[in-house]
Amino acid sequence: MFGRTKAQNRPEVTITAQEDSNSNSLIRIRNLNKYFDSFHCLFDINLDVALGEVVVVIGPSGSGKSTLCRCINRLETISSGVIEVAGKPVPAEGRELAQLRAQAGMVFQSFNLFSHLTVRQNVALAPIKVRRLSKDRANALAMELLGRVGMADHAHKHPGQLSGGQQQRVAIARALAMEPRVLLCDEPTSALDPEMIQEVLDVLTGLAAEGMTMLVVTHEMGFARKAADRVVFMDGGRVLDVAPPEQFFTNPRNDRAADFLAKVLTH
């Protein structure tokens, strides 16, 4: 308590777990630490995402944002701490883990559509194989979701024939087809041309407005401001601030966040 280390002297806002800790947290992260070999990349992360909440995670490259996002559905293993989704700890492996992943939809920076399948098959595959829907129902669901993201006309194409923005919209439809309780988006627009970013953000903003619970890692400050309920700022593997977007962007409490915003908001 008295012997403060250098790290503890950093100007940081203490994020205590509780502010909104309660039973309606869909995602609950406590004291999460993650090492890649000897590299400590996530430090004691505490974060809650409430049902229906949109949490946007921002921060410089290498700050651990993506790793945090990937830990939630265990695409990355965690070194210590607890992650709970819908009140249950994320299982280590096996069928239970597969079930958890089915509830946490994931949208990737590089889309990762299955390149050997058509757009419709991409969306319908998991409902058929994981949710055990009939082919007809899964295909109908796929077409409905593709309609929602404006891609129904391209259902017969292969991913290689689509633009990046179109592929990402299909990837969102694919994640939604599992009717997930939360959508995890790992830099969904970072691999896109500027003119395609908006079409993807529009889809995500629409989902947010419909009440989808989302955790979005992004560099799009406009999206964070418009769609987020809370903004999480990370740097060096730590959560340095959690604040409503209005407060975060106009009057950041954290020096590092203020510095980061000054740089990104000038362009």
């Binding site: 559905n73 695409l75 069928r95 597969a98 079930q99 958890l100 992943r101 089915a102 509830q103 946490a104 939809g105 994931m106 990737f108 590089s110 889309f111 990762n112 559509l113 299955f114 390149s115 050997h116 595959l125 998991a126 194989k129 994981v130 990837a171 694919r174 994640a175 599992m178």
Partner: peptide
């Protein structure tokens, strides 16, 4: 990324292999 996407959708190890 293809494998990660399949795992993220809830496919088991066998399904990831067989389907993707």
């Amino acid at each position: 990324g293809q494998i990660e996407a399949a795992r993220a959708l809830g496919f088991t190890f066998g399904q990831v292999l067989r389907l993707v």
